[in-house]
């Protein structure tokens, strides 16, 4: 299960539309969740509708919250979306058996069995969450709460039985030609990491769409790396067989 969790407080203003980027993510099998942070003024009607649109395009959830609710929201969204991903996969399988494919339409006894499978898979499947943090000027006072939420998310993920990893990006990046900066590569442990965000660019732009595309690329590269490695071992195995 792959997820991108976007934490932002407003509208993107540079480059590709984040809604299009989120649709790209979905087509790659990555669900996009969006949290809009409300403190210090409103995200505005435009921001609110964009946040909702991104999540809809990305097949994920969106919420507008205060900083105090951030940790709990991030944790619950990740969990819910993971269940949803499994649910969609199971539903697809069911389609051949049942025709309509909706779990809700099953009688309670059958539903019980299906949900047992969903719960089990949700708890044991591998889960990756790439957090994409809007670090534009207006978000700066909120970054401490964001960091706390990341630590809290890791704690919840560690309680799962399946393998769980997170990676953290922020945008915009100060480096030329880069839309977001990788702060933390895939990890299943945050012990000893007290500060995830070290250097901030002073740029005021919010290239949400391009940043998301870069994260999708990062996912793709990771998969590619793994695939080629598998190929290598396969090759070695076949050598042995021969």
């Amino acid at each position: 299960m792959k997820q991108i969790l976007l934490v932002t407080d407003g509208c993107s203003n540079v480059g590709m539309s984040p809604v299009v980027a989120a649709a790209h993510a979905k087509s790659e099998g990555i669900a996009v969740n969006v949290v809009g942070i409300l403190d210090y003024g409103d995200v505005g009607e435009l921001g609110a509708s964009e946040i909702e649109e991104i999540a809809r395009a990305g097949g994920g959830l969106s919420r507008l919250v205060n900083m105090r609710q951030l940790s709990q929201t991030v944790q619950m969204m990740t969990r819910k979306t993971a269940v949803q991903t499994i649910q969609l996969a199971v539903q697809k399988e069911l389609k051949q058996v049942l025709g309509n494919g909706s779990i809700e339409a099953l009688p309670p006894e059958k539903r019980s069995e299906v949900v047992r499978v969903i719960d089990e898979l949700g708890e044991t499947s591998k889960l990756q969450v790439a957090l994409l943090i809007d670090a534009s000027a207006s978000m700066k006072p909120k970054l401490r709460a964001v960091e706390e939420a990341i630590h809290d998310l890791m704690l919840s993920l560690q309680a799962r039985q399946g393998q769980s990893e997170i990676a953290v990006f922020h945008f915009p990046s100060s480096k030329h030609g880069e839309d977001c900066k990788l702060d933390l590569d895939w990890t299943d442990n945050l012990k000893g990491i007290s500060s995830i965000f070290t250097k901030f660019p002073m740029s005021g732009t919010t290239p949400t769409g391009p940043a998301m595309m870069q994260v999708i690329d990062f996912y793709r590269q990771g998969d590619y790396g793994k695939k080629s490695r598998n190929d290598e071992t396969d090759g070695m195995m076949s050598d042995y067989v021969v």
Binding site: S71, Q72, E123, D152, L155, S156, Q158, A159, R160, Q161
Partner: peptide, 24 residues
């Protein structure tokens, strides 16, 4: 037991107080 706690409330949560995991 052994799975991740399904539902909790922050102020009562062991993880929130940095006092341990969120495993059941």
């Amino acid at each position: 037991m052994g799975k991740g706690i399904r539902q909790f409330t922050e102020i009562y949560d062991r993880g929130f107080w940095n006092a341990g995991t969120r495993s059941a």
